[in-house]
Design a protein around this nucleic acid. Sequence first.
DNA 1: CCTGCTCATAAGCCCAGCTTATGCAACGCG
DNA 2: CGCGTTGCATAAGCTGGGCTTATGAGCAGG
Lengths: 311, 311
Amino acid sequence: MSRTEDHGGERPGNGGSLAHRVPDLGALELLLAVARVGSLGRAARELGITQPAASSRIRSMERQLGVALVDRSPRGSRLTDAGALVTDWARRIVEAAEAFDAGAQALRDRRDSRLRVAASMTIAEYLLPGWLVALRAQRPDTAVSLLAGNSTAVAERLLAGEADLGFVEGLTVPGGLDSAVIAHDRLVVVTAPSHPWARRRRPLAAEELAATPLVLREEGSGTRQVLDAALGGLARPLIELSSTTAVKAAAVGGAGPAVLSELAVGEELGMRRLVRIPVQSVALARDLRAVWPTGHRPAGPARDLLSLTRG
Amino acid sequence: MSRTEDHGGERPGNGGSLAHRVPDLGALELLLAVARVGSLGRAARELGITQPAASSRIRSMERQLGVALVDRSPRGSRLTDAGALVTDWARRIVEAAEAFDAGAQALRDRRDSRLRVAASMTIAEYLLPGWLVALRAQRPDTAVSLLAGNSTAVAERLLAGEADLGFVEGLTVPGGLDSAVIAHDRLVVVTAPSHPWARRRRPLAAEELAATPLVLREEGSGTRQVLDAALGGLARPLIELSSTTAVKAAAVGGAGPAVLSELAVGEELGMRRLVRIPVQSVALARDLRAVWPTGHRPAGPARDLLSLTRG
DNA sequence: CCTGCTCATAAGCCCAGCTTATGCAACGCG
DNA sequence: CGCGTTGCATAAGCTGGGCTTATGAGCAGG
């Protein structure tokens, strides 16, 4: 009985879900603390728990992973070689969690925040959380609120005085707003590694791209606009989906070639879940801009955030 | 009472540790499942739990974050706007956890694995987990074991027949091994954003770099070797630390400029915790190579993995 | 030799998350 | 129009993981 039965989503051969095989955030934070301070007890104090709790938690993490992580000695604890590696991998999870937390907090703080940001989806998804983490490190007491929407919505909020700083990714800047380019983005053509295009040697020609049915965002999205403009309104949809995520999932699943922001596919390219297909002579670049009401040069917290965004 | 007291490591103004503010992995996986299948009940079934469990878990996640994540209706559940954003951020955590899991499994499987990999630290830390995730997606039943060490150790394992495929990042290929370049890496000079160099307009000259005390890895490390070679053995240490992580931490903390692999600082640059300082006329590039015993061209699982590594 | 640091073990508490058993609302179909 | 199906919510009860306090044992240094 129990629930060992393999339902739909479970890949074969993995005993239970990720959550059962990966230590929880608390344990990972503890491990990082141990690595930093070199002692279970002091790490425990740093996290506000007792030494036995830390000891037991590290031990159960070692049991779970099947690997010794720390070398205990009467004079402290050091990471084993495997432990150092695990700790580095753990740090990635914790950093992602920090970004999540910063973003979530901004989503919640809505009311009494000192800095109200409006951002387009792509920027809110991929860039903003990192900026918020950095901002929090610099100015821990700046409460930020975030509102995500398309370029028009961002402009409205700014002009209505309901937001202090905006971020957009269109080809044009909405009227009534000043802007500064903070980064560049590019649309890229991607396929699953199994797709024939992944084995091409020569870059794709614009006509080939225009002639091929693609997995795309819906008409009206920023991404789609740029693509249509670049191809002269010719983009041929295989499927139209309403979120970047859905498009990625379809592409990973082998539905067909997709066109997506470079920002959106970084992770997937790194993990080789998607392969980037070079394209020739198609202008797929676009600017990412910070925007604010004409004249109202960002000051205070808005200026702090803005200065973080241009590295 | 309880433990609200702010001990050393806690930044002010954050109520408790990350783990208390970020939903656990199980909840995040559940959220992703709900987003995918559009129903609490079906998501629950997919994860092998009951519908009330899923319902309660999503609800408590919403309470924790202070944001409504899903719109429930008698015909299913769809993400709210905020929910879509949160789900995207959650996906990053889950992906990091998948990489962690793939790595940890390789660390454990030591014995009966079909593919034994030996890799240098930098590659094991930053690249390999992603490759393993991709490999698992392609060939779910390939058990991989991982041994991390320096170039010499990698070569030894391969030549002793204790590893099937190696990855090194040196300037030279150890004797007795064939190799293929799989990627390029570059050392970069980084500082905390507060460092004077961060506000420089002109690239750093080689002499300035050589004349400045730097935060460095210990002598003998791959990174250090490349730097010394590039500067003509002149690198002047401010501190010498024994792990990439420690170097990063020192640099982030403002100890001084550091020289690190591009791979190692990607995250920090994105979050603006570190700033990259352009350098002129210093050859800091290096190749990342797959290696194997001369003649034993990789086959089977080794070949699968190898083909994943050249995107 | 005692004091102070480290970690380990034991016994007990508490809450988060699970289960089963319900109820209620909306849709589609004979 | 009632019936079955699908989807979510609520209630009551169990269990285990993680916490606490209390204690012991190994090693270093004044």
